[in-house]
Amino acid sequence: MKENFRSFISFLAGIIVFALLYFKADWHIIVSGLIAVLIYGAVFLFTKPVKRIGNTPVDNIKGGQELLQIMSDAHDDMQVIYKASQLSLDADISEKAKKLHELGNRLLTYLDNNPKKISSARRFFSFYLDTGANILNKYMNLIASNPDSPQVQSLTPETARALDILHDAFMKQFNKLMQNEVMDVEADINLLEKTLHLEEGL
């Protein structure tokens, strides 16, 4: 909720309360005014938007504001990758950018649901994702400016190769983040098998 709208709603609530108390209930103007001010403050406070990463309030996460900024920057970078996947620059580039965007979205969704793991992915955000967005952004600008240039055209296979490298980096980061969950599932399966064998031996 934008600050101006919050202020307007709070002011309106205060005015309504003041009018009801002073004009309808015939309360003293000072008392009515004080209560109206309190109502204004209460409405303004309770309409304050709660910043979240996924469903988790930022205030409940250690270093939440910094992590929120990291995720915001990451989503901006993902928009660049999405843009590259939608432009008909080169079929191979578009397809690789599309796959990278899909994988990146899954990774960011996972981190939205597990915000405490964002810190462990700092290298991914600060280098791989940011570098990928920069490469594609520069490539799109060059293609748009001078598509017939041999130098620019020579960048197409290099950019495609970079997207392959980035896809591998994204996947490795995703697997690394999910390693604990995978180990937990494997432990549950092992426990299930051992329990079954023990019960069969009874």
Rank of each mutant, 00 (worst) to 15 (best):
D26W: 12
D26Y: 14
D26F: 13
W27K: 09
W27Q: 12
H28R: 15
H28S: 10
H28Q: 15
I30T: 15
V31W: 14
S32M: 13
S32E: 08
S32Y: 14
S32C: 11
G33F: 02
G33L: 01
L34V: 15
L34R: 09
L34Y: 11
I35S: 12
I35F: 11
A36D: 11
A36L: 07
A36K: 07
A36W: 08
V37Y: 10
L38P: 07
L38V: 12
L38H: 05
L38E: 08
L38T: 09
I39L: 05
Y40I: 09
Y40V: 11
Y40G: 04
Y40H: 07
G41N: 12
A42F: 10
A42P: 02
V43K: 09
V43L: 06
F44Q: 06
F44S: 08
F44N: 06
L45I: 10
L45F: 15
L45G: 12
L45T: 14
L45Q: 13
F46V: 12
F46H: 11
F46Y: 08
F46C: 03
T47R: 05
T47Y: 09
K48G: 11
K48M: 12
P49R: 13
P49Y: 14
P49C: 15
P49H: 12
K51E: 04
K51H: 04
R52D: 09
R52S: 10
I53S: 03
G54E: 03
G54A: 03
G54S: 02
G54N: 04
G54M: 03
G54K: 01
N55Y: 11
T56V: 06
T56D: 03
T56Q: 06
P57R: 14
P57I: 14
V58Q: 07
V58A: 07
D59R: 09
I61E: 08
I61W: 06
I61R: 08
I61Q: 08
I61D: 13
I61V: 13
K62N: 15
K62A: 15
K62W: 13
K62E: 15
G63S: 06
G63P: 07
G64P: 05
G64F: 03
G64Y: 02
G64T: 09
Q65C: 10
Q65S: 14
E66Y: 07
L67H: 13
I70H: 00
I70A: 01
I70D: 00
I70C: 00
S72P: 00
S72G: 03
S72A: 05
S72T: 04
S72C: 02
D73L: 00
D73I: 00
A74V: 06
A74E: 07
A74Y: 04
A74I: 05
H75I: 05
H75Q: 02
H75R: 08
D76K: 11
D77G: 03
M78E: 01
M78C: 00
M78F: 04
V80Q: 04
V80M: 03
V80H: 01
V80L: 02
I81P: 01
I81F: 00
Y82H: 02
Y82C: 00
